[in-house]
Design a protein around this nucleic acid. Structure first.
Length: 467
RNA sequence: GGCGGCAUAGCCAAGUGGUAAGGCACGGGUCUGCAAAACCCUUAUUCCCCGGUUCGAAUCCGGGUGCCGCCUCCA
């Protein structure tokens, strides 16, 4: 079995074959940095970070590029409202983005280009489109001539006629056709601006991605990804720009993640139910948030609620406890394995690995991959029941858990550092238990529980963890 | 109007032709000084409804019901 991915372009799962053997060029549309990111943004970031990790796990060399949109209408509006400059706002929220997404264990991209640092390339791109007749200047704006691009609508599977029904020309725009979209917008007085052959202005939203993909990855890339809502118009327009200019396809595979709802309602400002990552990770371990996101297939809608998150926290705790218990037991175990028996265990762990890969190969089915993780934990727990477990076997299962968790960007390992006074209490309880003074032992155990430390007596001695 | 998605146990969620993964919660048992953790057992003769195709369907086809999304800034 090898990797198959669902391609929005064909609406089918296709065998994944990169353009260049062993290498993957991947671009993910990043945030417009005018605010803190919400959990919908987080889902996209986590999902495609996981895709990247898995591609690397199966041996690809991945070049991962993700942009920051640091100039556009929303930033300009925010600038007016807050009396702060556009670059100030952008800088602040880029920093916040890195923190938020970093907490969720999303690795930084190889390159994080910014629109404002790509202006010369954007202008050159637009100029070439004008030269080829795919774009026109009108009143200081430049628009893409949609009807000239024959494939327009191929990604969202809409005909131009159907799309026209919803299209509007805003007041002040000078489009030839309602479906045309801005490549360059003339600056209004006081707005942030750059010089261009068409006067002072700023790039439209879609053009930056086309220019960045070309600059950092080339004319055709392997994977272009983003949220479902970017399919139209953003990605459709990117395709129009890039393919009109280059005469070759922009990306082989287009991946889109599904929506995230809050208590079964769409998350939106008007409903007032937007949850910021920043706030969420104050209440929940970021690992749990990531785990929760990955328990649902990335293309399916995911519902968010307190109860669901609590349930996910319980679920994830099971994996963490097994991990912790393996480590505790490893300190007390000896190497007992004979060579032939080792082969049996290796065969078992290889089988888990095969299953994990099989699930991830099926369009990144993280939900099923996680179920393999639970099966590994179950097996490990059974081994922990045995009084004479071998060190090699325990270590093999611990490593396997870490290996899978790492592909998913999850951290199972917890370091439990105890204060001196807590250690002293544990020691006192041990002495009390030896003397069969269970009243004292239980009192200390309750006391520690109140402080967030759970004690568990095992045949190998006392074991502790934090709540 | 056009395009698309979803409906599986109390809850979450995989599964898209071969006889219902996994997790949470619940109940019983084992282990334990008691716990905790863990393990074992139990928990959907059945996958929104009605027809059809098939040796066989949650899975395919037709019809219906309900919910949702996109077509406009949006992950």
């Amino acid at each position: 079995m090898s990797l198959r991915v669902f391609n929005t372009l064909t609406r089918q799962k296709e065998p994944f074959q990169p353009i260049e053997e062993g290498k993957v060029k991947m671009y993910v549309c990043g945030p417009t940095v005018y605010n803190y990111i919400h959990i919908g943004n987080a889902r996209a970031a986590v999902v495609f970070d996981t895709v990247r990790r898995y591609l690397e796990y199966i041996g690809y060399e991945v070049t991962f590029v993700s942009n920051f949109t640091d100039v556009d209408d929303r930033l300009i509006n925010a600038s007016k409202e807050r009396g702060e400059s556009v670059p100030e706002i952008a800088e602040r929220f880029i920093k916040a983005y890195r923190e938020d997404v970093g907490a969720l264990n999303v690795r930084p991209a190889d390159v994080h280009p910014r629109a404002t640092e790509t202006i010369p390339e954007i202008i050159a791109f637009i100029q070439k489109l004008i030269d080829k007749g795919y774009a026109y200047e009108a009143g200081g704006d430049v628009y893409f001539r949609t009807k000239k691009f024959r494939d327009y609508g191929k990604l969202s599977h809409q005909s131009i006629d159907e799309l026209k029904v919803g299209a509007r020309i805003q007041v002040g725009e000078h489009k030839e056709d309602p479906l045309d979209f801005a490549l360059w917008k003339a600056a209004k007085p006081g707005e942030i601006k750059w010089d261009s052959p068409w006067g002072e202005g700023r790039p439209g939203w879609h053009i930056e991605c086309s220019a960045m993909v070309e600059k950092y990855l080339g004319n055709t890339i392997d994977i272009h990804a983003g949220g479902q809502d970017l399919t139209f118009p953003h990605h459709e327009n990117e395709i129009a720009q890039s393919e009109a200019l280059h005469g070759q396809i922009m990306a082989k595979y287009w991946l889109h993640n599904g929506y995230l709802n809050i208590n079964n309602e769409k998350m939106s400002k008007s409903l007032g139910n937007v949850i910021l990552v920043r706030d969420l990770i104050k209440a929940y371990d970021p690992n749990v948030v990531r785990f929760f996101i990955l328990t649902v297939h990335y293309r399916h809608p995911i519902n968010f609620s307190d109860d669901l998150l609590k349930s996910a926290a319980q679920s994830f705790e099971r994996l963490r406890i097994t991990h912790l218990n393996l480590r505790h037991r490893l300190e007390k175990s000896a190497d007992l394995l004979e060579e032939e028996k080792e082969k049996v265990w290796t065969a078992k762990t290889d089988e888990f690995r095969r299953r994990f890969k099989e699930e991830m190969d099926d369009d990144f089915n993280t939900a099923n991959a996680i179920s393999v993780l639970f099966d590994v934990a179950k097996e490990a727990n059974v081994i922990l029941q045995d009084k004479n477990s071998s060190r090699q076997v325990l270590q093999a299962y611990l490593d396997l858990l870490d290996e899978f968790a790492n592909v998913l960007g999850l951290t199972l390992k917890q370091d439990v550092v105890l204060d001196e006074d807590i250690e002293a209490l544990i020691k006192r309880r041990e002495e009390a238990r030896k003397m069969k003074d269970f009243a004292t032992a239980d009192r200390i155990r309750d006391e520690l529980k109140a402080k967030g430390v759970i004690l568990e007596d095992t045949p190998q001695g006392v074991r502790w963890r934090r709540i």
